[in-house]
């Protein structure tokens, strides 16, 4: 009967090992998403004072099925200059996490790019460089701050992209910059 005894012991051992493994009684913890960007806000302040214009894209479900909600608070005025500031946030946290700080810290690895529809009569110029944000020392633009200069009336799309690890320096186009897209937002803008 020896083999049967061994057999029996083997099964007992198996049962024991298996029963020790019941660590699934505790419900899993929700993942605290660290990499998520939900919101990009561009605030455009008229150079000579006046009402701010806000461009916002907000995607609260991240990679979920809902598309981002894009809002433009109003038209730009023709032949004007605006001072622009970009803000990147994770609004799934309360209070919202300001990811702009992180972009600034890693300014040499990031750049905002602007793609302007030809029907839209405006130009955008960078007003910052990497060395504005410690500990960076480079002189390439980052794009957290910029100016928008409008000429004649018109309407079209303005795209704002945040690229991670782009080629630097680049000619300001997404094709030349390369890298990985962290944000890609398209706004319908009117210049009146």
């Amino acid at each position: 009967m020896k083999p049967f005894k061994q057999l029996f012991m083997l099964f007992c051992l198996t049962a024991l090992v298996m029963s020790c493994n019941d660590d699934d009684d505790n419900p899993p913890e929700p993942v605290n998403e660290e990499e998520v960007i939900t919101t990009l806000t561009a605030t455009l302040t008229p150079d000579g004072g006046g009402a701010e214009i806000e461009l916002t894209t907000r995607d609260l479900d991240g990679d979920g099925p809902n598309p981002p909600v894009v809002t433009v608070s109003g038209p730009l005025a023709a032949n004007s200059t605006y001072n622009g500031v970009l803000k990147v946030e994770n609004e799934t946290e309360d209070p919202a996490e300001d990811i702009t700080e992180e972009v600034k810290e890693e300014a040499e690895e990031h750049q905002f790019l602007f793609v302007i529809d030809s029907a839209l009569n405006l130009t955008i110029d960078y007003t910052d460089q990497e060395s504005d944000y410690a500990p960076n020392t480079g002189t390439n633009p980052v794009g957290v701050t910029f100016t928008v200069t409008t000429t004649d009336a018109g309407s079209g799309t303005l795209q704002i992209l945040l690229r991670h690890e782009p080629k630097k320096p680049n000619d300001g186009t997404p094709a030349d910059a390369g890298g990985e897209t962290d944000i890609e937002a398209t706004f319908n803008i009117a210049v009146n």
Partner: peptide
């Protein structure tokens, strides 16, 4: 495709 803030996937 689905749209996210990072673009379309």
């Amino acid at each position: 495709t689905e749209f996210t803030i990072r673009g379309a996937f």
